[in-house]
Design a protein around this nucleic acid. Structure first.
Lengths: 202, 202
DNA sequence: GGGCTACCATGACGGGCGTCATGAAGGAGG
DNA sequence: CCTCCTTCATGACGCCCGTCATGGTAGCCC
């Protein structure tokens, strides 16, 4: 709440991109939403809109990564499948309580700017990497062989992002539940055998 | 090649949405790309931009559905996993030969308009349904129990769409290969047991 | 030929966009 | 007191947007 105007602008940009996409999110709109002075734009973001969106994307990537770590720490008797279910549940909760207006800012940024701005595209790539890393790390911690942890992390991110898109299109969280139900056995089956029952014995 | 100007405009709209998103695709740009007369816009699409984009989305859904049917028919010794691999291979081929500038128009339309235009959002929902239906039908044909065929179809679409987004962000087709590799055993394991080896015996 | 319809052309309107130029408050340090 | 620097304010510029109004052309039907 006691954020600096600059931070507020970045956060507002991220939120507005989630709702309207990059192209339809105006600088003036960001300033109004952040209740920030318009003159601050050229002061804090001399790189213009690209810089503002790039910082919003980077922030979103960090936020997603932190959220993975937080949700992983809160699981009792954790398994890869439960981790994925918890990640999907966060979106499920948001959709059911706040509606389907807002999606993933990374997806929106890729869809709008992948062909026009290399800097933004790279920013999204890094954000995805920063999100994928803690997922893969958590998988290894749960007993998934390192050779497979990044592959499964990519699968989890892909399925989650796709399910988010389907859920928004249908205004229905069912796709999230479906991918969780179908992927759970696969994910839990990926833990190395010698560790498989260590959670009960150790 | 001998398409009517109206068709050309719909196709051009779909292509441009894939590249620039809905918000950044202008009507004049569509007209120019379609080499169509500008006056035809208000004649053929009195509903304005929404109507044009909605028809582009519907066409894209039909196209995806036809492509599924076509690729399913061409598989020899088909299995669910091979179907998914073939669907992903079409995107892989496009990315490697034509670059990463164009993504899925349905994803772009959801990201840009899910919160602002109910008609467009519904159009995308129908397009996804029309794409999902032949996938599920093919799965059943390959021996997947009907109770699971739609679930697996949702998983396939989700993972594919998500992998497309990741691939564009990284300008790298690896995510497509990864989801195929990880999902293939799961998909092939879903065929009912009495049909499992019927392909070699029958 | 006259009228009707389908199709196309062109220009204007109002509005929003991102960006830039100019300048004012207001505290820190000399 | 004066200067410097951060921060903010405001208005203008040029551009592109989606839409609408108006009119022109071409072909068919009576």
């Amino acid at each position: 709440m006691t954020r600096t105007p600059r931070e507020r602008m970045v956060l507002s940009a991220a939120q507005l991109v989630r709702i309207h996409g990059v192209g339809a999110t105006g600088m003036r709109e960001v300033v109004a939403h952040a209740e920030a002075p318009r003159g601050s734009l050229q002061h804090y973001f001399p790189g213009g809109k690209d810089q503002l969106i790039a910082e919003a994307v980077a922030w979103a990537g960090d936020y997603a990564a932190r959220r993975v770590a937080r949700v992983a720490a809160k699981l009792d008797d954790p398994t890869p499948g439960k981790l994925f279910a918890a990640m999907a549940a966060q979106w499920r909760d948001e959709f059911t309580t706040a509606g389907f207006d807002a999606g993933c800012p990374l997806v929106a940024t890729v869809a709008d700017t992948a062909s026009t701005s290399d800097s933004l595209r790279e920013a999204v790539g890094k954000a995805f990497d920063g999100w994928q890393r803690p997922v893969a790390a958590t998988l290894e911690q749960l007993g998934v062989p390192p050779a497979r942890s990044t592959s499964l992390a990519v699968l989890m991110l892909s399925a989650l992002e796709g399910a988010i898109v389907l859920a928004r299109a249908h205004r229905n969280v069912a796709p999230l539940d479906t991918v969780v139900a179908e992927l759970r056995p696969l994910l839990d089956g990926a833990v190395a055998k010698r560790r498989r029952r260590s959670s009960t014995v150790d």
